[in-house]
Design a protein around this nucleic acid. Structure first.
Lengths: 111, 111
DNA sequence: TCTCGCTGCTACATTTAATGTAGCGATACG
DNA sequence: CGTATCGCTACATTAAATGTAGCAGCGAGA
């Protein structure tokens, strides 16, 4: 298996338009994808630890997402379990403003 | 209807943990949510124009997401159609690094 | 007025994705 | 050997998304 032009996988519904941002938005827009990256932020987790961190999500979908994230080059399986690759870490870094935004958003609350 | 403490809605599977970032990750992790915000970046679109921009996604789900995004305060319905609120615009701004990342990602390709 | 064309929005049957529970083969410790 | 973990998978159930069709409302034109 060598794959990899970052293009949405064939079977994926919606947003396969060639532009990288679309492929990325498509991948990140799948259930648990964002969460997984978030939970891996502090270091590798075993598949079962990740499952616990993700509110006991079903291993089926976690495995599916993990595979997608590995193919995308964001996650890798090491001796310590699943962890972010340098690239994945860069991706996570882009979430930082999102985190700050979330805090502001919660204050905005019942506008 | 006035609603809005930014907490995940009741019926939502996964990630309802009180932390704002989780609610946000949950909302953004739904299909088409990221895409909608992205497509609205240059200005308001009518519901049908948005549908075209979103690869003819079904109006059912678009309407659902649009409602969620309006309740979250990210999108509003104006005379020109659906547009980002100032808050929504802030959220979009956090995607900018994501955009740049996507470009880098596409080059990384077959690492 | 009566259609035409657009707006935002909804119903409903079908298909796809995600869930939950269980268990596999492999590896390591005793 | 027993047991306990690892990553991963099968499979039936349930929830979400799709696709097609159509609603009511508004403004413009003949």
């Amino acid at each position: 298996m060598a794959k990899q032009a970052p293009a949405a996988k064939p079977g994926v519904r919606g947003s396969r338009s060639g532009r990288p941002i679309m492929a990325l938005l498509d991948l990140l827009g799948r259930r648990w994808t964002l969460r997984i990256i978030w939970e891996l932020r502090e270091g590798p987790l075993t598949s079962r630890a990740l499952r616990s961190a993700c509110d006991e999500a079903s291993p089926t979908i976690l495995q599916t997402r993990l595979t997608e994230l590995r193919e995308a080059g964001f996650v890798e399986l090491t001796d310590d379990g699943y962890g972010l690759t340098p690239l994945g870490r860069e991706l996570f870094a882009t979430f930082t403003p999102l985190h700050r935004f979330a805090e502001r958003w919660s204050k905005h609350a019942g506008s």
